[in-house]
Deep mutational scan, measured.
Amino acid sequence: MEVRTIKVFTTVDNINLHTQVVDMSMTYGQQFGPTYLDGADVTKIKPHNSHEGKTFYVLPNDDTLRVEAFEYYHTTDPSFLGRYMSALNHTKKWKYPQVNGLTSIKWADNNCYLATALLTLQQIELKFNPPALQDAYYRARAGEAANFCALILAYCNKTVGELGDVRETMSYLFQHANLDSCKRVLNVVCKTCGQQQTTLKGVEAVMYMGTLSYEQFKKGVQIPCTCGKQATKYLVQQESPFVMMSAPPAQYELKHGTFTCASEYTGNYQCGHYKHITSKETLYCIDGALLTKSSEYKGPITDVFYKENSYTTTIK
Rank of each mutant, 00 (worst) to 15 (best):
E2L: 11
E2Q: 10
V3A: 13
R4Q: 15
K7N: 10
V8G: 05
T10Y: 14
T10E: 06
T11P: 05
V12D: 07
V12Y: 06
N14M: 13
N14K: 11
I15L: 11
N16P: 04
N16R: 09
L17S: 06
T19F: 08
Q20R: 11
V21C: 14
D23T: 13
M24I: 14
S25N: 12
T27E: 10
Y28H: 05
Y28F: 15
Q30T: 14
Q30C: 15
F32S: 07
Y36N: 05
D38I: 10
G39P: 04
G39Q: 10
A40K: 13
A40T: 14
D41Y: 07
D41V: 08
V42L: 12
V42I: 14
T43C: 10
K44V: 15
K44L: 12
I45K: 14
K46I: 13
K46L: 15
P47Y: 05
P47R: 03
P47I: 06
N49F: 12
N49Q: 13
S50V: 13
E52N: 13
G53V: 07
G53I: 06
T55C: 08
T55R: 11
F56S: 05
N61A: 12
N61S: 14
D62H: 07
D63W: 06
L65K: 14
R66M: 12
V67N: 14
E68G: 07
E68K: 09
Y72N: 08
Y73V: 02
Y73I: 01
Y73Q: 05
Y73D: 05
H74V: 04
T76N: 08
T76K: 08
D77V: 05
D77F: 04
F80S: 02
F80I: 05
L81N: 02
L81V: 14
G82M: 13
G82W: 12
R83T: 06
R83N: 10
Y84H: 00
Y84V: 04
Y84D: 03
M85L: 13
M85C: 08
L88F: 09
N89I: 07
H90A: 14
H90Y: 15
K92S: 10
W94L: 04
W94T: 06
K95R: 11
K95P: 01
K95W: 07
P97M: 15
Q98H: 10
V99T: 09
V99W: 11
G101D: 07
L102K: 04
T103C: 08
S104Q: 03
I105W: 03
K106S: 09
W107A: 05
A108F: 03
D109C: 04
N111G: 01
N111T: 02
C112H: 03
C112K: 05
Y113F: 11
Y113K: 01
L114S: 02
A115T: 14
T116C: 13
A117K: 02
A117V: 12
L119H: 00
L119K: 03
L119T: 05
L121H: 02
L121P: 03
Q122F: 02
Q123F: 02
K127M: 09
P130V: 07
P130T: 09
A132W: 05
L133G: 04
Q134R: 13
D135W: 08
A136S: 10
Y137D: 03
Y137K: 03
Y137T: 02
Y137C: 07
Y138S: 12
Y138K: 14
R139D: 10
A140T: 10
A140H: 04
E144G: 08
A145Y: 02
A145F: 02
A146L: 04
C149H: 03
A150C: 01
A150S: 04
L151S: 04
L151A: 03
L153V: 05
L153E: 02
A154C: 06
A154R: 02
A154M: 04
C156W: 00
N157V: 05
T159C: 13
T159S: 15
T159P: 05
V160T: 05
G164Q: 04
R167H: 06
R167W: 03
T169M: 07
S171A: 12
Y172V: 08
F174Q: 03
F174H: 02
F174G: 02
Q175H: 14
H176R: 10
H176K: 10
A177N: 03
L179F: 10
L179M: 07
L179W: 07
D180P: 01
D180I: 06
K183S: 09
R184V: 02
N187E: 08
N187L: 12
N187I: 11
V188Y: 08
V188L: 09
V188S: 07
V188F: 08
V189E: 15
K191I: 10
T192F: 10
T192D: 14
C193K: 01
Q196Y: 15
Q197M: 10
Q197E: 12
T199C: 12
L200K: 10
L200E: 09
E204C: 06
A205S: 07
G210V: 00
T211W: 01
T211L: 08
L212D: 00
S213K: 03
S213T: 01
Y214I: 12
F217N: 03
G220W: 02
V221D: 02
P224H: 11
T226P: 12
K229N: 13
A231T: 03
A231N: 02
T232G: 02
Y234W: 09
Y234C: 07
V236I: 09
Q237T: 12
Q238T: 02
E239G: 03
E239S: 10
S240H: 01
P241Q: 10
V243E: 03
M245T: 01
S246E: 02
A247Y: 02
P249A: 01
Q251R: 07
Y252W: 12
E253K: 13
K255E: 15
H256F: 11
G257I: 02
G257T: 05
T258S: 12
T258A: 14
C261A: 05
A262E: 01
Y265A: 01
Y265C: 00
Y265W: 00
Y265V: 01
T266S: 14
T266K: 10
G267R: 06
N268L: 10
Q270A: 14
G272H: 00
H273M: 00
H273F: 00
H273S: 01
K275R: 13
H276V: 02
I277T: 04
I277V: 10
I277M: 02
K280Y: 09
E281F: 02
T282R: 10
T282S: 13
L283K: 00
L283N: 00
Y284A: 14
C285A: 15
D287Y: 00
D287S: 03
A289T: 10
A289E: 12
A289P: 08
L290E: 14
T292M: 10
K293N: 10
S295E: 08
E296N: 07
E296A: 15
E296G: 10
P300F: 15
D303H: 00
V304L: 04
V304Y: 02
F305R: 01
Y306T: 01
S310K: 01
S310W: 11
T312K: 09
T314S: 10
K316I: 14
